[in-house]
């Protein structure tokens, strides 16, 4: 397991579910016994506007209630933000950025203003379309985040997600299988550069 405090920043656009993904990650960590914080940064999002959300995941309760300025990980749910938002701002060099993109990590790095840490890419759009049937980048992004950040152990993550999805979609087993497939695929396919 990793260090005792992990701080994550999510970048997305209103309506894409970055906030939901952030809360899901908090759930996942919570189930594994961690102390979690998951909070979006407000002004209220409107469809399409860039939004930021944060996770603080710790072994002991963290009392800090400020935003996160030096995250360990940054997750970019919408690649088009790279041109307008300084997504690597404050990101620790020993940390990593995970971007939803079909591009190779090294190609993305050139867009990141000299960021020296790990750059990962995951084609969440394709994976979700193949597995869930529509562009729902949340699930693949969550899986990639778990794999790269190691905030929870992968096997346990898969088990927890499955039981949580089964609980949520009792009457729609196909949703569960699609999402589970998306998680597995994403963990296999995330590219680390």
């Amino acid at each position: 397991m990793g260090k005792s405090t992990v701080e994550i920043r999510w970048h997305g656009r209103g309506g894409q579910g970055a906030k939901t993904a952030c809360l899901l990650l908090a759930d996942v960590a919570f189930y594994s016994g961690k102390h979690v914080q998951g909070f979006p940064e407000y002004g209220p999002e409107r469809m399409g506007a860039p939004i930021t959300a944060y996770n603080r995941i710790t072994d002991k309760r963290c009392t800090v209630h400020s935003n996160i300025y030096s995250p360990d990980y940054v997750i970019v749910v919408d690649e088009t933000l790279l041109g307008s938002v300084d997504v690597t701002s404050g990101l620790k060099e020993e940390g990593a950025i995970i971007i939803n993109s079909e591009k190779e990590p090294e190609e993305l790095r050139s867009l990141l203003g000299g960021f020296k840490g790990q750059v990962c890419s995951i084609d969440a759009r394709r994976i979700s379309e193949e597995t869930i049937g529509r562009n729902m980048p949340n699930t693949p992004m969550l899986a990639a985040a778990v794999k790269i950040s190691k905030i929870v152990e992968q096997e346990q993550f898969i088990r927890d997600m499955e039981s949580s999805l089964r609980h949520k979609f009792t009457t729609k087993p196909q949703v569960v299988s699609g999402n589970m497939e998306a998680l597995r695929k994403s963990m296999e396919e995330v590219k680390v550069g």
Binding site: G43, P44, I51, T52, V85, D86
Partner: peptide, 13 residues
């Protein structure tokens, strides 16, 4: 003063 375009784009709800 973070270059955080959020502030520029966010409207009020």
């Amino acid at each position: 003063q973070m270059e955080n375009n959020n502030w520029r784009w966010q409207s009020n709800g």
